[in-house]
Nucleic acid binder design. Structure first.
Length: 498
RNA sequence: GGUCCUGUGGCCGAGCGGCUAGGCUCAGCUCUGCAAAAGCUGCUACAGCGGUUCGAAUCCGCUCGGGACCUCCA
C-alpha cells in the first residue's frame, strides 16, 4: 500500500506507477530560481510543492538526491536569446557588481525557503560553478552535428534535431505548429532556424560576466545550465525533473533536446509540472501588478492584502490544493486556511500529550477499523500523485477522533494500543514530516514583561485577601525560573536572583 | 491563429462511471459561572442542453463562461 506511488508524467500525460531507475534511490532535479530579484511567490509554490514531494519520497524510505540549481548567469530577458542579461541589467540599476546581485538575492531566497520550512536540497549547484561542464556538453552537441557557430555564438539546430527526435513531445506539439507561432527572422538574425536557441552567447566587450571558451569570450545559454548540472549530479537519465508549467514549452523542451543531442539518451523518466498562482482569479505576474512578495504576504503590507498571513498558514493553504491545479490567492481563502491550520496544530499539541494506558474496557471494533482506515487514506492521498488535499481531509477526520478522545466524548479505552499508536504516529508524521508544518509562536516581543506584570498583580491580590498558599506558590515557582519577588514599601517588585 | 486546461454548495477546494471528501462561513444544539475550546445537526452542489449507460459531477457532442502556453515570468 505505502509503496504504490503514482505520479502524473507530463511526458505521457497519464498517471504512471513510480518505479525508480535504481531500486531504492531517486534522482530529483528541480529548476531553481534566477537570483536577479526577490523570489516570486509563484516560484515559492513550486519549491514548496517539490518539498512535499521530496519529504514524501524520503518518508517512503527512498534515498533521494535532490538537486535544485541557482541560476546566477546567462538568463537573458527573452528566453530565446534576446535582450539584456538579467544580472547585468539589475547590477547597473542597483549600482552593484553582478555577483553582488547574485549573493544578495540568493541569501534572500534561502531566508524565504527557511521560513516556509522547506528542507534544503542535497545539492544546490550554481550555473557559474559549472561553466566547464556546459562547454563540454556544447562541444559534444557540435560534434554530433546538432549545433553550429556563428561569430562566437553557438546555436542549437532544432530542425536537424527534429529530423531524428521529436522536439515538441513535452507539450505535444508539431514542429510546423511551433514554427508558425514564432515571428520571422529579420535580417539581423544570425541563426538559421526560427526555433534555434543559443547554447553559448558571445559576450559584448563591456560585459562583466564572461568566460573563455573554444569559441571566444562569452557566457552560457540558460537552458544548457540545467542539462549540464542535472547530468553531472544525477546521470544522463534520472528519475524526476520538476518545475513550473511555464517552463514546459521552452526550457524543458530544450533541455530534452540538448541531452539527447549530446548523449542520445532521454534525460528524464518522469516530468512533473506545478501549476500557476492566481490572485482573485488573475494570474500573478509582474505585468498584472498583482504579484506580492513573500515578505509582503507575511506582513500584509500590500494593497491586495487585508492582513498578514504566517508562512506556515500559507504553506498549509498551498497544500490544500493539488499541485497541478491553479491556486487562487484571496483574503477569504487565506483566512479560512489560517484557521484550519491552527486547528491542525492544536491537534498536534493534543495528540502528543495523549497516551494510551492499555485499558480496552470499552473496546469498539468498528471504531478501531475506521481509524485504521483513515490512516491508510492519508497514504492513499499522497500515493495518488501527491494529492495532499485528500491527505489533509483525512487528517481532519482523524482530528475529530483525537479531539473526542481528548475531551472524553469517546473513551480512549474503546481503542486498542495498536490503533491508538497508529493514529498518533500517522497524525504526527503527516503533519510534521510530510506536510512540513510546525507550530509557530506568535509571541509579542515584550510578552515576558507583560506576563510578569500579570503574575505580580495576582501575587498582590492574593496577599491582600491573605491567600498565603497562592502567595507562597507564586514565589516558589517564579524562583525556580531565577526571579525573586520583593515586597517593598513602594509595592511589589521583581529582580533576578543573585 | 495554433496547443491545451478548466467551470463543483455562501466561499475555497478534492473527487473524474455507482460509495458522507475536507476546510471556512452562517444557523441551531450539547457542554459550560462567563467565555473559549471541543463534539453534534442543518444549509440537500456539480455551467446549460442533448447523448451513451441499469446508473454520470465523472464518458461523448454542442452551446456559453474562465484560464494557460506559443512572448518576460515557476
Amino acid at each position: 500500500m505505502q509503496n504504490q506511488l503514482f505520479i502524473y508524467n507530463t511526458l505521457s500525460r497519464t498517471k504512471e506507477k513510480f518505479e525508480p531507475i535504481n531500486k531504492g534511490m531517486v534522482g530529483l532535479y528541480v529548476c531553481g530560481p534566477t537570483v536577479y530579484s526577490d523570489v516570486h511567490l509563484g516560484n515559492c509554490r513550486t519549491f514548496i510543492s517539490f518539498d512535499l514531494i521530496y519529504r514524501y519520497l524520503l518518508h517512503l524510505g527512498f534515498k533521494v538526491r535532490y538537486v535544485r540549481n541557482i541560476t546566477d548567469a546567462g538568463h537573458l530577458e527573452g528566453d530565446r536569446d534576446e535582450g539584456e542579461d538579467k544580472f547585468e541589467k539589475k547590477a547597473k540599476l542597483e549600482q552593484l557588481e553582478p555577483m553582488e546581485i547574485v549573493q544578495k538575492y540568493t541569501l534572500g531566497f534561502h531566508d524565504v525557503m527557511r521560513e516556509f520550512n522547506t528542507l534544503p536540497p542535497s545539492i544546490e549547484p550554481t550555473a557559474t560553478g559549472h561553466i566547464c561542464e556546459q562547454i563540454e556538453m556544447i562541444k559534444h552537441i557540435i560534434v554530433n552535428g546538432f549545433a553550429y557557430e556563428v561569430n562566437g555564438t553557438i546555436y542549437f539546430d532544432v530542425e536537424k534535431y527534429n529530423s531524428q527526435y521529436k522536439y515538441g513531445q513535452l507539450t505535444n506539439r508539431q514542429l510546423e505548429d511551433l514554427v508558425a507561432g514564432t515571428r520571422e527572422l529579420n535580417g539581423q538574425d544570425e541563426k538559421r532556424g526560427r526555433l534555434d536557441f543559443a547554447l553559448w552567447i558571445k559576450a559584448k566587450p563591456e560585459q562583466i560576466m564572461q568566460w573563455l571558451s573554444p569559441w571566444g569570450w562569452g557566457f552560457p545559454g540558460w537552458h544548457i545550465e540545467c542539462s549540464a548540472m542535472s547530468s553531472k549530479y544525477l546521470g544522463n537519465t534520472f528519475d524526476i525533473h520538476g518545475g513550473g508549467m511555464d517552463l514546459q514549452a521552452t526550457h524543458h523542451t530544450n533541455e530534452i533536446a540538448q541531452s539527447q543531442a549530446c548523449n542520445h539518451k532521454t534525460p528524464v523518466k518522469y516530468w512533473m509540472h506545478t501549476n500557476m498562482l492566481t490572485v482573485n482569479g488573475v494570474r500573478m505576474s509582474k505585468s498584472a501588478g498583482n504579484g506580492f512578495l513573500p515578505d509582503q504576504l507575511f506582513s500584509g503590507k500590500h494593497p491586495l492584502l487585508e492582513k498578514g498571513y504566517s508562512p506556515m498558514a500559507v504553506r498549509f493553504f498551498m497544500m490544500q490544493t493539488h499541485y497541478r491545479s491553479t491556486l487562487d490567492f484571496s483574503n477569504e481563502a487565506l483566512k479560512a486556511s489560517e484557521k484550519a491550520f491552527k486547528k491542525i496544530i492544536n491537534g498536534l499539541i493534543t495528540i502528543k500529550i495523549l497516551t494510551h494506558n492499555e485499558d480496552t474496557a470499552s473496546f469498539d471494533e468498528e471504531l478501531n477499523s475506521d481509524i485504521l482506515r483513515l490512516c491508510s487514506l492519508c497514504y492513499a492521498g499522497m500515493n495518488d500523485d501527491f494529492n495532499s488535499a485528500i491527505t489533509i481531509a483525512n487528517l481532519f477526520n482523524l482530528l475529530k477522533y483525537i479531539n473526542s478522545f481528548h475531551h472524553n466524548i469517546l473513551p480512549l479505552a474503546s481503542l486498542n494500543k495498536n490503533s491508538f499508536e497508529t493514529m498518533k504516529r500517522t497524525y504526527i508524521v503527516f503533519v510534521e514530516d510530510i506536510l512540513g508544518l510546525k507550530e509557530e509562536k506568535f509571541f509579542k516581543p515584550n510578552l515576558i514583561d507583560d506576563v510578569l506584570e500579570i503574575l505580580l498583580q495576582t501575587y498582590k491580590n492574593a496577599k491582600e485577601i491573605k491567600d498565603y498558599k497562592t502567595v507562597d506558590l507564586i514565589r516558589a515557582k517564579i524562583k525556580e525560573e531565577g526571579i525573586i519577588i520583593k515586597d517593598t514599601k513602594n509595592g511589589v517588585e521583581w529582580a533576578y536572583e543573585e
